[in-house]
């Protein structure tokens, strides 16, 4: 017997992600899912973002890592609530892992939820967790061939932060090439050039992010 299904293989995750999204929507919380290769600068960017915005907005963080609490400890030092998820080998976060942290947060006192995904350029883009949008970091030492090699990441993201531009003099990487090829995959991608460590360009990212936080708060 033949059974015709035509079913999204990841439907179970989609359903949980939608539930998570409904909660964030109800509370007017902007949830962002930050993805990159290992070491591109996600935690550094999140620390910078918190330092500048924490007097203006109530921020919380979910840290996804295969192992260790290293990143969560750094975020905790900034004074905002943070929950660590250890995926125990899984190379991406999914909707269920996110919803399991919910009893540790007070969503009535939150404007922005930052989710740091596991460092990986393939599957984090496939698993929605209930975020408003995805943000991708690409650091210049990784090279300018990444849009062609990992198109789904660029396609699924709303913003691309090209990080570590302080290292441009030392690496072989064309920002122009990254921009052209990223926009071919996703013409609506907002692109920022930053040094998360030294602060260059971070203001433009924060201005953009603030608009999104305010829009979300007002949509409640």
């Amino acid at each position: 017997m033949k059974v015709s299904l035509v079913t999204n293989i990841l439907q179970a995750n989609e359903r949980i992600a939608e539930q998570n999204k409904r909660l964030f929507d109800e509370k007017g919380i902007l949830a962002i899912n930050i993805m990159s290769a290992p070491g591109a600068g996600k935690t550094t960017l999140i620390e910078q973002t918190i330092r500048t915005l924490k007097n203006e907005y109530r921020i919380a963080v979910i840290e996804g890592d295969i192992q260790s609490t290293h990143d969560a400890d750094k975020i905790a030092a900034t004074g905002v609530p943070v929950v660590q998820i250890n995926t125990g080998g899984a190379c991406h976060l999914d909707g269920n892992m996110i919803s399991q942290t919910f009893d540790q947060f007070n969503f009535d006192a939150m404007d922005l939820l930052i989710i740091e995904n596991v460092g990986n350029l393939v599957c984090p883009a496939e698993f929605n967790v209930g975020e408003d949008f995805k943000v991708m970091l690409l650091s210049v030492p990784e090279g300018d061939d990444k849009p062609m090699k990992y198109p789904l990441m660029f396609y699924e993201s709303s913003a691309l932060l090209i990080n570590k531009i302080d290292l441009l003099p030392y690496v072989d990487c064309s920002i122009e090439k990254i921009r052209t090829e990223s926009w071919q995959i996703n013409p609506d991608l907002a692109i920022f050039e930053i040094s998360a460590k030294q602060g260059e360009g971070v203001d433009a990212w924060l201005d953009w992010l603030k608009i999104k936080i305010n829009e979300k708060a007002n949509s409640k």
Binding site: M1, K2, L5, V6, I9, L10, P147, M148, T180, P187
Partner: peptide, 27 residues
């Protein structure tokens, strides 16, 4: 990804397929 539109040469496009991840049927 390097290709531009074969008809007008523009490089802005919307992806209309290639993202599928489905079970079509089983027997």
């Amino acid at each position: 990804w390097q290709e531009n539109c074969a008809s007008c040469g523009e490089n802005q496009m919307d992806i209309i397929s290639g993202k599928e991840l489905e079970i079509a049927e089983f027997e």
